[in-house]
């Protein structure tokens, strides 16, 4: 009993001695170094294996990293890559942006007014359950082969994950907080502004995360189906002419774009809703 008491007292005494801090820091630094070594090694191994295997295979079926790098330089030089990238980016920004702007208010109205809920619930479920790819030819029939059509396809891929997440968020508002708002005689506007919207933010951010990935899928599909613009078209063109190395270049650019988009949404999630990633303290 006595020993455990004295142990406790020592454990709770102020800052640890400098040699403990130093040891801990060194341990952490060496772990950090090891982590990066493993990462770099893993990339190197894959690249080397790819290169070794790639040069032996028929260049129509596969391409080694060096050939892809060469194609990359060539495509940057002649400007095809940059113009395709900008075309794609514009479609993505317009489609995804419109989806964000439309879906969030729509979801909040849907969640807060029961008659709206009864009216649209089954439609949303039905459309969400449909693989959107199946509707792409129909959208093209309606909206043509141009920019509008591509933006609408991206929009429809991004819209539903955003809508459903924002709806979930507005539905899961803490009832006590709604009661707080009511007891302070809030007008409906204030209930939205101070309770419903902020409590939906973590859900909206999760939706944005999903929508970012979906919108890229929509983008590439749209560019496959419509006339010759964007990264998707570059992929198609290179594949049709059996220039496999050139095909890998836009694929990698799209991959990087996707990773960057996810990074942005994660960053936003932490910035906009710092409370949501914290464990509840009781």
């Amino acid at each position: 009993m006595a020993t455990s008491l004295s142990l406790e007292r020592r454990a709770s005494s102020s800052a640890p001695p400098p040699e403990v801090v130093e040891r801990e820091r060194r341990r952490r630094r060496s772990r950090h170094r090891l982590m990066w070594t493993v990462r770099v090694l893993s990339v190197a191994v894959v690249l080397v294996a790819w290169q070794v295997y790639g040069v032996r295979v028929n260049p129509i079926l596969f391409a080694p990293p060096t050939a892809i790098a060469e194609a990359f330089v060539a495509m940057v030089r002649d400007g095809t890559l940059l113009s395709a990238f900008l075309q794609s980016l514009l479609v993505l920004v317009v489609g995804l942006g419109a989806a964000i702007v439309v879906s969030i208010p729509a979801a909040l109205v849907w969640a807060r007014y029961d008659p709206v809920d009864w009216a649209v619930q089954h439609y949303v479920n039905a459309i969400y359950a449909t693989p959107l790819v199946a509707l792409v030819p129909l959208l093209i029939l309606w909206f043509g082969l141009g920019f509008l059509s591509r933006a609408i396809i991206v929009f429809s891929f991004a819209f539903f994950p955003l809508l459903l997440n924002a709806y979930q968020g507005a539905k899961s508002v803490d009832r006590e907080l709604l009661e707080v708002a009511r007891s302070f005689r809030c007008r409906e506007y204030h209930v939205w502004r101070h309770v419903v919207l902020p409590s939906s933010v973590p859900f909206i951010m999760a939706g944005l995360n999903l929508a970012a990935g979906r919108s890229l899928v929509g983008l590439i599909i749209a560019e496959f189906y419509t006339t010759g613009t964007g990264l998707g078209y570059l992929v198609l063109q290179a594949a049709n002419t059996f220039r496999t190395a050139r095909m890998f270049v836009p694929v990698i650019v799209v991959m990087v774009l996707g990773v960057a988009l996810l990074g942005v949404t994660r960053y936003l999630q932490r910035r906009v809703a710092p409370w949501s990633s914290q464990p509840e303290r009781q």
């Binding site: 708002a181 101070h194 902020p198 933010v201 949501s276």
Partner: peptide
């Protein structure tokens, strides 16, 4: 309120100000 009923997205200051703001 029993559970304090504070808005998690508001600082202590903004929570105290809530009734006055609305």
């Amino acid at each position: 309120f029993q559970g304090s009923g504070l808005m998690p997205w508001k600082t202590i200051y903004d929570n105290v100000a809530f009734g006055l703001v609305v």
